[in-house]
Amino acid sequence: MATISAMSETPSYGEIPAPPGLRDRVACLWRFRQADAPASPVRILPDGHVDLIWDGRALFVAGPDTAAAMADVEAGVVLTGMRLAPGVGANLLGLPLHHLANRRVALAELWGTRANRAGDALAEGRNPQAALLALCDGVVVDRRMQQLFRFLQTEEAARVTGLAAALGFSERSLRRRCQDAFGYGAKTLDRILRLQRFLKLAPHHPGLTAAALAAGYGDAQHLARDTQQLVGLSPRALLAGHGR
């Protein structure tokens, strides 16, 4: 699940860095408050992450998205989220992430009574973010998948070809490990992270083509195809609604 960007100015969204000792397991904490009046659905961009979300009543998992998703959030609802660091989700949740791709699942379906205890702690406590962070205590991080993710985030990211050997995998093993760790293969992850890189770089370049090339697209047409397929918007419309 990606950063929530509301379609009107009334809803609010903010991120909080994870504590230093948990930054290999938690990408960030976040809070979203929907407007009190009825609001349009919220577009959520794919970003290669999985989020655990508390809505004040239930705890659920937003699995890895392969394309933008539209979410209806009730008026006045406050969501508190924890975005997991790459290489953490499968070990924390206890199953390969391809089972959760493009899904929103109650944590109780995965954890049973353990999820109920976590929900009770969230309902009773004054600090839901601390209760979410406690869920990551002791979880094992897949360091090689974390390394792959961080490499593909960079502006110098190469094509996926050759990454398997660099990480000590066969091509088949890399595909399986990525599907388990991210919910999809390395090529899909590469496309998603390139789109996120474009959003980050666009404000610092004079035009769409310059930003597209800096982000790793072959040309402006390549960018347009990816934004349409991954988000359902043109590059300009994407920047207008989700630019940073």
Score class of each variant (00 low, 15 high):
residue 77 V to N: 14
residue 77 V to K: 07
residue 78 V to E: 02
residue 78 V to N: 07
residue 79 L to G: 06
residue 79 L to R: 04
residue 80 T to F: 05
residue 80 T to D: 08
residue 81 G to C: 12
residue 81 G to W: 14
residue 82 M to W: 13
residue 82 M to G: 11
residue 82 M to I: 14
residue 83 R to V: 13
residue 83 R to P: 08
residue 83 R to E: 14
residue 83 R to F: 06
residue 83 R to H: 11
residue 84 L to Q: 03
residue 84 L to A: 01
residue 85 A to H: 01
residue 86 P to Q: 02
residue 87 G to A: 03
residue 87 G to F: 04
residue 87 G to P: 03
residue 88 V to R: 02
residue 88 V to Y: 01
residue 88 V to H: 00
residue 89 G to N: 03
residue 90 A to G: 02
residue 91 N to Q: 02
residue 91 N to L: 12
residue 91 N to D: 15
residue 91 N to I: 15
residue 91 N to K: 14
residue 92 L to I: 09
residue 93 L to I: 15
residue 93 L to N: 01
residue 94 G to V: 13
residue 94 G to C: 08
residue 94 G to P: 08
residue 94 G to W: 07
residue 94 G to M: 04
residue 95 L to G: 05
residue 95 L to S: 12
residue 95 L to F: 09
residue 95 L to C: 12
residue 96 P to F: 01
residue 96 P to N: 08
residue 96 P to T: 06
residue 96 P to E: 02
residue 97 L to C: 13
residue 97 L to Q: 08
residue 97 L to G: 04
residue 97 L to N: 06
residue 98 H to K: 04
residue 98 H to W: 10
residue 98 H to P: 12
residue 98 H to S: 03
residue 99 H to N: 07
residue 100 L to H: 05
residue 101 A to D: 03
residue 101 A to K: 09
residue 102 N to D: 15
residue 103 R to S: 07
residue 103 R to H: 06
residue 103 R to W: 12
residue 103 R to Q: 05
residue 105 V to E: 00
residue 105 V to N: 04
residue 105 V to W: 08
residue 105 V to P: 13
residue 105 V to M: 10
residue 106 A to T: 11
residue 106 A to K: 11
residue 107 L to P: 05
residue 107 L to A: 04
residue 108 A to Y: 03
residue 108 A to K: 02
residue 108 A to T: 15
residue 108 A to M: 09
residue 108 A to H: 10
residue 109 E to I: 06
residue 110 L to G: 02
residue 110 L to P: 01
residue 110 L to C: 03
residue 112 G to C: 11
residue 112 G to T: 09
residue 112 G to V: 10
residue 113 T to Q: 07
residue 113 T to V: 15
residue 113 T to F: 06
residue 113 T to Y: 14
residue 115 A to Q: 14
residue 116 N to P: 06
residue 116 N to F: 09
residue 117 R to V: 13
residue 117 R to T: 03
residue 118 A to L: 06
residue 118 A to I: 10
residue 118 A to V: 05
residue 119 G to H: 10
residue 120 D to Q: 09
residue 121 A to H: 00
residue 121 A to T: 04
residue 123 A to E: 13
residue 123 A to D: 13
residue 123 A to S: 15
residue 123 A to Y: 11
residue 123 A to F: 15
residue 124 E to T: 05
residue 124 E to W: 12
residue 124 E to F: 11
residue 125 G to F: 01
residue 125 G to I: 06
residue 125 G to P: 05
residue 125 G to K: 13
residue 125 G to E: 05
residue 126 R to K: 07
residue 126 R to S: 08
residue 126 R to Y: 03
residue 126 R to M: 08
residue 126 R to W: 12
residue 127 N to W: 11
residue 127 N to K: 12
residue 128 P to R: 08
residue 129 Q to H: 08
residue 129 Q to S: 05
residue 129 Q to K: 12
residue 129 Q to P: 03
residue 129 Q to Y: 02
residue 130 A to Y: 08
residue 130 A to S: 11
residue 131 A to P: 01
residue 132 L to R: 07
residue 132 L to D: 06
residue 132 L to T: 12
residue 132 L to H: 04
residue 132 L to P: 04
residue 132 L to Y: 07
residue 133 L to K: 09
residue 133 L to V: 14
residue 133 L to E: 05
residue 134 A to E: 08
residue 135 L to G: 03
residue 135 L to V: 14
residue 136 C to G: 09
residue 136 C to K: 10
residue 137 D to R: 13
residue 137 D to Y: 11
residue 137 D to I: 15
residue 138 G to T: 05
residue 139 V to P: 02
residue 139 V to R: 04
residue 140 V to S: 12
